[in-house]
Structure formats: C-alpha cells, structure tokens
C-alpha cells in the first residue's frame, strides 16, 4: 500500500466486499489487490505475476472475473467485490470449494483461490459449462504444479452439484 503523501489524490469509495459495506478514501494509484490484502487484510487473494497473466489474484467485481493486481481500487466504487473469503457462509463451504477438496484440485495450493474465483464467475455466467468451455475459461489461470485435470474435474462436479441443489 502506498505511503500517504500530501499531494496524493484520495478518492472516496463505497463498496460491498463479501456482503459487507466498506467506505473511505483510497489513493488513486492503489490497486484492488493492495486494497484487499493490505487495507482489508484478506490474504486469500494472491499476488503473483502482477501483469494480468497468471490469474492468482482473480476476484469478482459485480460477478465478473478481474485481475485485482492490474485494476485500480477506486474503480470498485458503487460495486460489489467477492473474494475467496466470501464464498463460504456460516462455515458452509461453496460447492466449488467442496469439489476442489474432494477431487484434490490443487497441489501446492497457491493458485487455488484464483482458480476457484475464476470458476465461480464461469458458473455464475453458465451453470452447465461443457468441458471445453471450462478449459477455455480457466486457460488464464496458471497452475505451475499442473493440477489441471483435477481442477477441471472439480469444476465439473461443482456444476453438477449446483444444478442438483437448484432443482
């Protein structure tokens, strides 16, 4: 987070993060990643490539997947942000989190929050994606351990689960 100086432009921001309202001034150059990790202390969102390639810092802004490393925090004014911490409610995990655990959709786990948030955006947009739609959508989330087959299986299972619970 940038150290505050007198000539820094501070912008008023009102935002809903994981269901809770936050408001306050933010420096113009603060990234959404800095806002989430440093200002709010939500460290589930990971900092990695910082060039919008790897997907480790993916969060949802108004249900759209965003690289929080390369997105200005002031842009979320009036919007809602969902991070990995907001997926579970009252200790009940999201079907995606359950499926990633059951299928071991991770090895080291560093990319996992980004994988899950990206998959969450996909399932919000398309509740029954094909295997190809899943792999295309997640192609921007890199897993250096190479857990891709288990990640895809996890998303497929969560989609089936989600659709069953809707019915």
């Amino acid at each position: 987070m940038a150290e505050r100086t007198d000539d820094m432009q501070m912008l008023p921001v009102r935002v809903n993060v994981n269901g809770e309202n936050w408001q306050g001034p933010i420096p113009a150059q603060e990234t959404l990643l800095e806002f989430i990790r440093v200002r709010l202390g939500l460290t589930g969102t990971k900092r990695s490539c910082e060039s919008q390639v790897c997907g480790a810092c993916t969060v949802l802004v108004d249900e759209q997947p965003i690289s929080s490393c390369n997105y200005l925090a002031c842009e979320v004014d009036g919007k809602s942000v969902l991070t990995i911490e907001g997926l579970s409610k009252n200790d009940v995990l999201d079907p995606l989190q359950e499926a990633f655990m059951r299928n071991i959709g991770a090895q080291c786990g560093f990319c996992t929050p980004g994988q899950i948030m990206s998959a969450k955006a996909l399932l919000l947009a398309n509740s029954s994606p094909t295997r190809q739609e899943i792999t295309e959508w997640l192609s921007g989330n890199i897993c250096r351990c190479g857990a891709y087959p288990a990640i895809v299986a996890s998303v497929q299972e969560a989609a089936r689960q989600g659709n069953r619970s809707v019915q």
Partner: peptide, 9 residues
Amino acid sequence: VANIRVRGQ
C-alpha cells in the same frame, strides 16, 4: 485475446 480477465477489461 489473452484471457477472460483481459478481455473483460
């Protein structure tokens, strides 16, 4: 183009 996040932004 790139990935879903870059395309959205």
